[in-house]
Design a protein around this nucleic acid. Structure first.
Lengths: 209, 209
DNA sequence: AATATTTATGACCAGCAGTCAACAAATAAC
DNA sequence: GTTATTTGTTGACTGCTGGTCATAAATATT
């Protein structure tokens, strides 16, 4: 009985080791530059063993992405809880997002990477759904803040909160991507985010025209 | 004398053929799924000949990207010229962007792809600079509209036009990417863009707080 | 016609993700 | 304690791809 449990623990541990090792490599060198042999060498297991846990390089990446989305989600929740006024909550949320970006630069490439390039078929459907769900959860978090703002009159009504949340989310992503594509100097990112935030907030104060 | 010119014309024609063929393939199947042998077979030249014109698969892609950015730029210029009021001009510009997206779905993946994944080193520095310049030109077009709006008082001052342009550009990109990642249903994209646009415009009416 | 130069070719190479038959270790059965 | 069975590990191997290069073909020059 406990043998089985131990085995399961070991398996789980091995899995975790592969994931954290791969994450470090991906973050350091980028997804494309890391080979499975690199990962295998780093975890000191053979390539075959890795494929015993994951069915493709992309799946490994997807699990890492999921982890990061969980972190982002927790940041957002914290942000929503910490603030009082709606503006403050939204500000916290943006800051949380930018903080995650700063702390995990390379990961953001991966975040965009999945939508744009990765061969989606190489990622199991269930995992893909899980990732979608996390993104939706992040959006819902934003949405909750917005709805609260509408209720308390800080934010003008007439715009579906879901749509506004997506707009804000898109804006954040878009601006960060500008920075990532070196269209914007790293230093100006905060300034740019602040401007975007200020415009959006000003626009949201009044009801939809 | 005219022999040389003919040769040059032929070379140019060959180049163009490779580019348009590759473009069709990329758009139909995506960058990753197209092999150089596919391209070679489609243009009915050997792979070696292709490498006589381009130094990497990425470079081919980059030239296509450049072409598309030129189209976008012309769309934006037209939009700015066509509108009267600032709001109308901005609206036209957004519509132009979304139109390009609708007409060249797959290309947008490529647009994001370059920033995120592509091994930049595989693209000659000069070409890379050219691409950067086109993007900046697009931003400048937006900026011009905004400055005009500030001058005529339709848009509140206090915000550097360059930054606002980047925010708008980022917002557009971000929202389109949401659609592309199937977070948003294709049908809702127009609605979402409209909401974003409305919020931004409302926010811009008043001077920076 | 002979020679030089330019251009096209496709067999070839290296690197990679992913496979699998053989093997080793742990566990179960007797 | 010995054998059978299950489970997990391995790394040589495959197939595919971007990219190269010696050779061949075409063209230009004399």
């Amino acid at each position: 009985m406990s043998v089985k449990q131990r085995k399961l623990r070991e398996l789980e541990a091995r899995r975790g080791l592969i994931l954290t090792t791969a994450k470090d490599l991906f973050i350091k060198n980028g997804f494309g530059a890391v080979t499975l042999d690199d990962i295998a060498a780093a975890v000191e297991f053979s390539k075959g063993t890795i494929y015993n846990h994951f069915c493709s390089k992309e799946e490994i990446y997807a699990w890492i992405l999921l982890e990061h989305l969980d972190i982002l989600l927790s940041y957002l929740r914290e942000a929503a809880r910490a603030g009082r006024a709606t503006a403050e909550k939204l500000g916290n949320a943006t800051k949380a997002y930018v903080r995650l970006y700063r702390e995990h630069r390379e990961y953001f490439k991966l975040l965009f990477f999945i939508d744009v390039v990765s061969d989606q078929d190489r990622i199991p459907e269930g995992l893909r759904r899980e990732i979608r769900h996390r993104k939706i959860a992040c959006l819902l978090e934003l949405q909750a803040i917005l709805k609260d703002g509408i209720r308390s009159g800080k934010i003008g009504g007439g715009r579906p909160a879901a749509q506004v949340a997506m707009v804000l989310w898109g804006m954040l992503n878009g601006i960060i991507q500008l920075a990532e594509s070196r269209q914007v100097h790293e230093n100006d990112l905060d300034r740019l985010i602040a401007v975007g935030f200020e415009i959006a907030l000003a626009g949201l104060k009044n009801p939809a025209s």
